[in-house]
Structure formats: C-alpha cells, structure tokens
Design a binder for these strands. Structure first.
Lengths: 187, 187
DNA sequence: TGCTCCATGTAACACGTTACATGATTGC
DNA sequence: GCAATCATGTAACGTGTTACATGGAGCA
C-alpha cells in the first residue's frame, strides 16, 4: 500500500488540489507510481477521514469548487513510519515479455510492429528525461541533499529507458531476422 | 488483463496442474508477471468455464486430487489474438523510489539499510539468471527461434538486475555521504 | 503420532480501472 | 453560444492480496 504515501509525499512537496495532484502524478512521481485521478480523490478522502491531511478552500478559489489539502503532523509521522519500514523490491508486470513467450510457443504472431512502437515511446521518454536533466541539473552546480536525491531518481529513469532501448533494438533485429536457410524456424 | 494469457502460455509450454503452475510461476514467467496460487486457481476455473482450457485427471493421479489442464483450440486462438493486440509499455510501481522522494522532503529517514538489502537481493537474482544462462545458453551453440527468444527474455532480466545494481551502488554512496562542511544538508 | 509437503480451493477485502455525471470558467 | 478545460466526484466492476479450510501422502 504505497499510493497514500506517494500522495503524502507529493503534498509535502507542494500543498495543492486533487486535480493538480492527478496532473503532477502524470508527469513526475507517476513515472514510478502511476495513479488515476479517481484513485487520488479516493485516497484524499480516506486520508482526510484518517486525520493525515486537511482540506481547505484556497484564497484564490473564487466561486470554483477547488479544494486544497495540506499534510497534518499525523500524516507526516505516517509517511516517516512507512519509509522506515522494509518493502519488497518492485515486481515487474511486463506484458510484452509474456507476449514474447507466447510467440516462442505459438510461432504465429509478429511482434515486431509492437516492439517498434514501444521503442519509440521509450525514446520519447528518454528524451524527456534528458531535457529535464539538462534544465534542472546542469553539471558542476552544487546540489543540496534533496536535489542530489531528485537527480538520482531521474537517473534511474534514464537508465531504465536506455536499457529498454538497447535491449529492444537487439530484440527487434531477432524478430526481423529471416529463418536460417536449411534450418526452418517453424516446426 | 494478461494473467490468463500468461497462464495459457505456460500451459502450452507444458500441460500441468494448478499447483505446478503456481510453482513454475515463482521461478520463470513470474519474474515478469507475478501471480499467487489463488489467482492461478481462479483463472483456471474461469478459463475452463470459457472453454479455453480443459481439465482432466492425469494417469499418475492415484488417489490424489491432482488435476491437469490442457489448452483447447479456443484458448490458443485467444492467446494469438491477445498477442497481436497492442498493449501499453509496462508501468513501474517502485516503492523504493517513492521512499526516496519522501526522504528528500522529510529528511529524517535512513534508507541506506533498505537499499543495501535490495542490492543484495538484486545480486542474488542476477547470479541466478547468469547460472541459467551458463546452463541453457552456452555460447556458440545454435539456437532455434524459440530458444533465441527465451535467451533474449533472460537477457532482459540480466540487464534489469545489472541496472538496479549499478544505480543502487551510486545511490548508496550518496545516502551514506556525510553532509558537506559549511553546507549543512538539514535545513 | 505429528510434521511437512502436495493439492485445491473459499471468502473477504483492498486496490486499480472504466464509464459516467455534474457544473463552473475560459477563450473563441 | 459552444467547446475545451478545470474540478470533483459516484458507481460498477475487475484484479490482486491475505487469511483460512480441507484432506491425502510420505516420513520419522
């Protein structure tokens, strides 16, 4: 159960609304812990009931329904408690790898186009990460501890995308290679 | 929805029982798509109801409750259909990265021991993959298409673990580094 | 006899996904 | 006036997790 903790973290970084949280999830913490806006609204309601956060109408609300949330001491304590607790390493849920195994056993699907598509998505994401890196972490500039951690998180994303791309290219070559002469690959 | 397809793939590789499937998941396809035995029993029941697979009592069952499943043509078709359909690239769900961000904002937790623990788990897993590679994919030996795919899947696991280890070591160094003199890292 | 492993399940619940509803504000 | 975007939600359903139940087989 990490979604509430991801939300708490995001709220500590910046007190804001459910809507904004959902949008920020899509392009920062969500790269490592995805959530839809419905999940976020649900968690906000639960955490408010639990006394971890508090909702309030922001000064600039005007006539809108906008509601902001701030983290209460109990929420901060809960986040620290969870962070100190051991959790198992991430487990993968990679549908494409399952498809590859299906291909190996069926030998009647062509996964090349799908892999091509994933490859270009990974290249886009990598370009995006590199852009952020160039903008926020220019070399030589001294970093606070918090910034150094943020940079390492970004680097993890970069490393991941690079790995996907390197592997994907080799895999694509294999999927596109013709059956060797004299050794037909279809049994 | 990929679990039924992972199960179909596994059953095509080898007709077997729910119990054995659950155990094989733990150490092969499950590295890329984890499932508990309850999920597997549930999916088997659903797929049998859907006419994708068929249960039968194996010859060596004796007085046990053991039941094997084989894939029916409809199941094979469904697997091929799903494999040909596009799916989004895997999304990550990495609790440790969330904890890092929590650390960056709270600055009152020590994630070094947890990272150390993850590092040694990743090293174990890498050693395990390398062992399989040395055993099943000795260099120079010619491979069928299916074997070449299996090898690439294994390489993906290896690349992933290597990435985690490389990154983890750098991260550990940062977590263990003392606050720079004259620039206290706690605000 | 009691322990562990084989083997299959039920039940309850937590979490994630998809579809839909509602209404205000902003820009053309 | 209309469409897009802001903003918050409800409802239904599907998937994943945890706890528990049941009983046979093999072994000390």
């Amino acid at each position: 159960m990490s979604l509430p903790h991801a939300v708490l973290t995001s709220l500590l970084e910046k007190t804001t609304s459910g809507y904004d949280l959902a949008r920020r999830f899509d392009k920062s913490i969500g790269y490592f812990w995805h959530a839809t806006h419905q999940q976020i609204y649900r968690e906000l309601a639960r955490m408010e009931a639990a006394g971890w956060i508090e909702g309030f109408v922001p000064p600039d609300a005007g006539k809108t329904r906008k509601k902001h949330y701030r983290v209460l001491p109990a929420g901060r304590r809960e986040l620290a408690r969870w962070a100190a607790e051991p959790t198992p390493p991430m487990d993968l849920r990679d549908a494409f790898t399952v498809k590859l195994r299906a291909d190996a056993v069926l030998d009647e699907v062509d996964l090349a186009p799908e892999l091509q598509r994933h490859l270009s998505l990974h290249m886009q994401q990598l370009a995006h990460y590199r852009h952020i890196e160039a903008h926020d972490f220019a070399p030589g500039r001294p970093l606070t501890r918090a910034q150094a951690i943020q940079h390492m998180i970004l680097k993890k994303g970069i490393l991941y995308e690079e790995g996907e791309i390197t592997w994907g290219r080799e895999m694509l070559a294999l999927l596109q290679s013709p059956a060797p002469l004299g050794a037909p690959h279809r049994a």
